[in-house]
Each structure stands twice: as structure tokens, then as C-alpha cells.
């Protein structure tokens, strides 16, 4: 009797195993290639409502939502406007749940900025990360980059980069880049004041030399800008080249460029 029962169990097990293997295999085939369903997580829940509902599990829920976002971004499917809308909401939810999440702002920058070209949304989300991660210069850098590269707004770009460069771990190049953009935006004095403030905080001799050179270059530009303005007032036109300033007696000599190359004039802008 027991032997019969065992045989029955064995047959049932084999049959079920066949069904299970076939069913699960087909299920994987179908679902593995399914487009990540963004609507599942990016529901109509406003980010702040989700935060309240998550209770003590905000971090965990944020992690799970990020997996959804990452799965969607990695799915290589052509996204529609509606998808980008959902993804934006998803990021808003994630950052409401966990504003410190590094991977979230990385994904925001890679997907919303580069792929979706939703710069306004991306910058809004990056600002949340920047304000929360006070030790991290990258969100501020991304903000600056987006304003410079995508929005052609040098003034805002330099402001964001200046803010980012004040973060203790920020690379030195960020400060000089910010100053360059400020100068491009016509904010040479701002750039000089910013770099002089930076200089006070730097002890490393090599780094000081880099900043001092940039300050010198900017001061040279300031002198040239004033000379060009004076030239225009006296002769009614802008000089074609910087040497015109000397030839027509506006200044005695051109300031020294610390970068061992002459200053150049492009349009009305002096470059170093």
C-alpha cells in the first residue's frame, strides 16, 4: 500500500515538475523582455503622500522604486513622452523618500538630462540632491554642467559650479571652471572675488599657484575690458585686435597672460 502511495507521489511530482519547468520557463521568456512597467510604481501618489504612507520604510521603498527606474532605463525600449513623465514622477517619489540617494541623481542625470532632454525636471531633482548631500559636489556640478551645456546659461552655470566648488571634497578644476564661465558671462569681477575667497582656504602650494594664475588672467581681462570700453567711447568702434589698444594709445602695454600665450579678442570678448 505504501509502495503504491509512493509511486503515486513520485508520478505526481514528475508531472508537476514538467508543468512547472515549462510554465516557469515560458513565463520568464515572456516577462524578461517585458518593458518595465513604470505606471506600477509611478502611480498617482504625490511624492509627499508616498512619504507619509511609507512610514519607517521610506528608505526601503525608495530602493525598490529605484530598481523599477533602473530596470526601465536599462530596458533599451524607446520611451514615449508618457514614459518620461512617469519616470520623472518616479524620481520625484524616490527623492522624496530618500533625498540622499546617490544613485537616484546619477540616473536623473543620465536619463532625464541626456535621453529625455527634460532639463528643467532634471535640474529640479538635482537641486534636491545637492541640498541634501552637502558633502557631495557632483549634483552641483551636474547642475552647472546642464546650465552651461544644454541651457547655454553661463551665468547660472558659473553660480552652480561656484557653489559646488565650495564643497570641501570638490576638485580644484571646478573653481577655475566656474570662474571661466563667470568671466564668459561677463561677470569677471565676480569670478575674481570668488577665486580670491577660494585662495584663502587653500594651503597646498601647487593648488595656490593654479588659482593665483587664474586670478592674474582674470585681472588682465578686467584691464582689457576697461580699455576696450574706453576705446569704444573715444573712437566709436570696437578694436579689431588687442594691439589696436596700444597703437591708438589707450593703454601702454597689454597685461601679462600667466598662461604664456597672448590674450585674444573674439567679438567683444577677451579670452585668455
Amino acid at each position: 500500500m505504501r509502495a503504491v502511495s509512493r509511486t503515486r507521489i513520485l508520478i505526481a511530482a514528475i508531472c508537476l515538475l514538467i508543468v512547472y519547468t515549462t510554465g516557469t520557463s515560458r513565463l520568464h521568456d515572456i516577462r524578461d523582455v517585458m518593458k518595465a512597467d513604470l505606471k506600477a510604481s509611478a502611480s498617482v501618489f504625490p511624492p509627499q503622500a508616498l512619504k507619509i504612507m511609507a512610514g519607517e520604510f521610506k528608505g526601503l521603498l525608495g530602493d525598490l522604486l529605484l530598481i523599477d527606474a533602473a530596470a526601465f532605463i536599462g530596458s533599451n525600449k524607446k520611451a514615449t513622452e508618457e514614459d518620461w513623465e512617469s519616470l520623472t514622477l518616479l524620481f520625484k517619489q524616490i527623492l522624496a523618500l530618500d533625498p540622499f540617494f546617490k544613485q537616484a541623481y546619477y540616473l536623473v542625470q543620465s536619463s532625464l538630462t541626456w535621453d529625455a532632454k527634460r532639463h528643467g525636471d532634471a535640474n529640479e531633482l538635482l537641486a534636491i540632491s545637492r541640498d541634501s548631500r552637502t558633502w557631495d559636489w557632483l549634483p552641483g556640478f551636474f547642475l552647472g554642467f546642464n546650465h552651461f551645456y544644454f541651457l547655454n546659461d553661463n551665468e547660472s552655470a558659473s553660480r552652480h559650479l561656484m557653489d559646488a566648488s565650495r564643497v570641501p571634497s570638490a576638485p580644484l578644476g571646478l573653481a577655475t571652471l566656474a570662474a571661466r564661465l563667470a568671466q564668459k558671462a561677463g561677470e569677471t569681477i565676480t569670478a575674481i572675488v570668488f577665486l580670491e575667497a577660494m585662495l584663502d582656504k587653500i594651503d597646498d602650494e601647487e593648488q595656490r599657484k593654479v588659482i593665483e594664475a587664474r586670478i592674474e588672467a582674470l585681472k588682465g581681462i578686467l584691464v582689457l575690458d576697461k580699455a576696450i570700453k574706453s576705446y569704444k567711447e573715444r573712437f566709436g568702434t570696437t578694436p579689431e585686435k588687442l594691439d589696436d589698444l596700444i597703437n591708438r594709445g589707450v593703454i601702454a602695454s597689454l597685461p601679462k597672460n600667466p598662461y604664456e600665450r597672448p590674450y585674444t579678442l573674439k567679438g567683444e570678448k577677451v579670452q585668455f
Binding site: V19, Y20, R26, L27, I30
Partner: peptide, 22 residues
């Protein structure tokens, strides 16, 4: 709702229950 996926989900579920019970 993808009917095929639903069918395989059903078979996956029922066979899983059967195997676990065994």
C-alpha cells in the same frame, strides 16, 4: 492583460503549489 502570460502564470502557480505540497 497578456493572455499567454496569464496562462503560464497560472500553470507556474498551480504547479508550484503542487510541488511545494509534495
Amino acid at each position: 492583460i497578456d493572455k499567454e502570460a496569464l496562462l503560464w502564470s497560472f500553470l507556474h502557480g498551480v504547479s508550484y503549489i503542487g510541488l511545494i505540497l509534495i
